Measured scan of single mutants.
Amino acid sequence: CHSECLGNCSQPDDPTKCVACRNFYLDGRCVETCPPPYYHFQDWRCVNFSFCQDLHHKCKNSRRQGCHQYVIHNNKCIPECPSGYTMNSSNLLCTPCLGPCPKVCHLLEGEKTIDSVTSAQELRGCTVINGSLIINIRGGNNLAAELEANLGLIEEISGYLKIRRSYALVSLSFFRKLRLIRGETLEIGNYSFYALDNQNLRQLWDWSKHNLTITQGKLFFHYNPKLCLSEIHKMEEVSGTKGRQERNDIALKTNGDQASCENELLKFSYIRTSFDKILLRWEPYWPPDFRDLLGFMLFYKEAPYQNVTEFDGQDACGSNSWTVVDIDPPLRSNDPKSQNHPGWLMRGLKPWTQYAIFVKTLVTFSDERRTYGAKSDIIYVQTDATNPSVPLDPISVSNSSSQIILKWKPPSDPNGNITHYLVFWERQAEDSELFELDYCLKGLKLPSRTWSPPFESEDSQKHNQSEYEDSAGECCSCPKTDSQILKELEESSFRKTFEDYLHNVVFVPRKT
């Protein structure tokens, strides 16, 4: 048989008469490798580009789960590009990614509803959504962080984005990388972005840091009482949809009607710091009717980097990364020049730590249904340095008659930039024990000054392991946590139920 035959053949030295091919099969003959313009397919066939392209389009058009959109890589027609490569849609070739590779997620039936953290986790790592997304989240724990972890990498949506009755959302900033909504599939009414009845939605994105392009379709905003109209108009300008909307697409009466839409800028007039305090004062603000001013709200939190936005980490279910302080308005003076500047002394802060701070007014709604208010920009203030805590785990070892090696770990709280350490030492008198000992005694162990690591005695271990207080009263049991108490109650309830079950099964009433 021919060298490319495997198993047997019907005619000697003829690659077209093989029972099976050793390498690849091409047009009725066995070959060692697939010549151009053919590609290896499933490690035994040679196919042309049209064959591989037909497989790709067949799966793409069917949208069946589990099928493969075949691509070409290293002269092979394979189910998908290997790690580190992405497909070129024009020629199906796998090309190296520039940075992290995109991950295209194809949605069944063309859309997916995100109504819980669990459903959001199914899209973790996706960068391109081939379909439409509907966000409908009523509640949950730590929602802002969970949504950002699972949806934060999405850069492109081919269909539309719909935010509907998501009472738990305060902001859409968890879509931190969303840059493009194509609108290839539109919501009824030709809408590519749809926001309806979101009672706590206050911000779409921080438009000073976020760009969003909507290729096709219109915007729809109705019944978002805490979303200011200025935020919607800003989205029109940034996304390129200005002029597409009709009169009733953006409701003037049901958007922002319960919001404090600040239209003035508060400026800080005085800032002073110490290692654990920050004193702030800002310019006074009074609405047209000074009785509408209820006070100020001061927001602050630790910020290692200057990239904080107002609604980071917030949701309507209680999660809030900001510390909020309510401040009463100052006494009002008739003389504008003698107006008191409101302020606040922030206490209990960490030394040498940068804080993000902003302040906003708290006002009631005027009778004319106009909203007044003022808010400052987010500023960054760093507390002063102070003395560091003591170095940890000092170790001293003498390696000769004239040297001592000293080692330690950095302090747990540096409280500033540590530039150097101060080492103090003092000579001590020799131990009298060394002169009084009889060095001729056998088995004498000389006193040693070398360091030995501390260890816990058996008594201390027994005390720590004991669940009861000892007789001397030195140790006591740790208080039980809520989960331990709940577990004990469940076990007790189970024992009672099981005992009742045994009584009912074992003891049967005697027939009379």
Rank of each mutant, 00 (worst) to 15 (best):
K103Q: 13
V104C: 03
C105Q: 01
H106A: 03
H106P: 08
H106F: 07
H106K: 04
L107K: 03
L108W: 15
E111R: 13
T113K: 12
I114E: 00
I114L: 09
D115G: 01
S116K: 14
V117Y: 02
T118K: 11
T118I: 06
T118V: 05
S119K: 01
A120P: 03
Q121N: 10
Q121R: 13
E122V: 12
L123N: 01
R124Q: 03
R124S: 11
R124F: 03
G125M: 12
G125D: 10
C126I: 02
T127S: 10
N130T: 11
S132F: 01
L133W: 00
L133R: 00
L133Y: 01
I134T: 15
I134R: 07
N136L: 10
I137T: 13
R138C: 02
G139Q: 15
G140A: 15
G140E: 05
N141L: 10
N142S: 12
A144Y: 05
A144P: 09
A145M: 11
A145G: 09
E146P: 11
L147T: 02
L147V: 04
L147M: 13
E148I: 12
E148S: 06
E148W: 10
A149F: 14
L151S: 01
G152M: 05
L153K: 13
I154T: 06
I154M: 10
E155L: 06
E156Y: 07
E156P: 00
I157V: 14
S158C: 13
S158L: 15
S158K: 10
S158E: 04
G159M: 01
Y160A: 15
Y160C: 15
Y160F: 11
L161Y: 01
L161V: 08
K162A: 02
K162H: 13
K162C: 06
I163S: 02
I163K: 02
R165S: 15
R165H: 06
S166Y: 02
Y167M: 15
A168I: 04
L169E: 02
V170T: 10
V170K: 04
V170L: 10
S171N: 08
S171T: 08
L172Y: 01
S173I: 07
S173K: 13
F174A: 09
R176V: 12
R176A: 06
K177T: 13
K177Q: 05
K177D: 15
L180A: 11
G183I: 00
E184Q: 12
E187S: 10
E187T: 08
I188C: 04
I188T: 14
G189V: 14
G189L: 15
G189A: 11
Y191M: 05
S192D: 01
F193Q: 00
Y194D: 09
A195Y: 00
D197S: 02
D197R: 15
N198H: 00
Q199P: 08
N200Q: 10
R202F: 08
R202P: 01
D206F: 06
D206V: 08
D206L: 07
W207P: 03
W207E: 01
S208Q: 12
K209D: 02
K209L: 09
K209E: 04
K209I: 15
N211W: 13
N211M: 12
T213C: 12
I214S: 03
I214H: 02
I214A: 07
G217W: 01
G217N: 03
G217T: 00
L219H: 03
L219S: 06
F220D: 04
F221Y: 11
F221K: 01
H222E: 11
Y223T: 14
P225W: 04
L227I: 12
C228T: 03
C228S: 02
C228H: 12
L229F: 15
L229I: 01
L229M: 06
E231M: 08
H233A: 04
H233I: 13
K234S: 10
K234F: 08
E237F: 08
G240S: 03
T241Y: 11
T241E: 06
K242N: 11
R244H: 13
E246G: 15
E246T: 10
R247E: 03
R247C: 07
R247L: 09
R247Y: 07
R247M: 09
N248E: 11
D249L: 15
I250N: 14
A251F: 08
L252D: 05
L252R: 10
T254I: 15
T254D: 03
D257P: 03
A259S: 09
A259M: 06
A259C: 14
C261D: 03
N263F: 02
N263V: 06
N263Q: 07
E264A: 03
L266T: 03
K267A: 10
F268V: 07
F268S: 01
F268G: 00
S269W: 03
S269L: 12
I271M: 08
D276A: 11
I278P: 00
I278N: 00
L279T: 01
L279K: 15
L280R: 00
E283L: 06
P284S: 03
P284R: 08
Y285S: 09
Y285E: 01
W286H: 04
P287L: 09
P288A: 08
D289A: 04
F290R: 05
F290Y: 10
R291H: 04
D292W: 12
M297T: 02
F299Q: 06
Y300P: 00
K301W: 05
K301Q: 05
E302F: 03
A303K: 05
A303W: 07
A303S: 10
Y305F: 09
Y305M: 14
Q306V: 09
N307G: 03
N307P: 09
V308H: 00
D312K: 14
D312F: 13
Q314H: 05
D315Y: 06
A316P: 14
N320A: 09
W322P: 02
T323A: 13
V324Q: 04
D328N: 14
P330K: 05
L331H: 09
L331Q: 14
R332Q: 10
S333D: 13
N334H: 15
N334Q: 13
D335K: 11
P336A: 00
P336Q: 14
K337G: 08
N340K: 05
H341L: 08
H341T: 14
P342K: 03
G343V: 02
G343N: 15
G343A: 11
W344P: 00
W344I: 03
L345G: 05
L345I: 13
L345S: 13
M346P: 00
G348K: 01
L349V: 05
K350S: 11
P351D: 02
W352P: 00
W352L: 08
W352V: 08
Q354I: 15
Y355P: 00
A356E: 01
I357T: 13
V359K: 00
T361K: 02
T361M: 09
L362Q: 03
T364Q: 01
T364L: 01
T371Y: 15
T371L: 13
Y372V: 13
Y372S: 07
G373H: 02
S376M: 01
S376P: 02
I378M: 03
I378S: 01
I379L: 09
I379H: 04
V381T: 04
V381M: 08
V381A: 05
Q382S: 15
T383H: 00
T383F: 00
T383G: 00
D384G: 14
D384F: 02
S389P: 03
S389A: 04
L392Y: 14
D393T: 11
I395A: 12
I395R: 15
S398C: 13
N399P: 13
S400K: 13
S402I: 03
S402R: 13
S402W: 06
Q403A: 02
I405S: 14
I405R: 09
K407L: 04
P410L: 11
P411L: 02
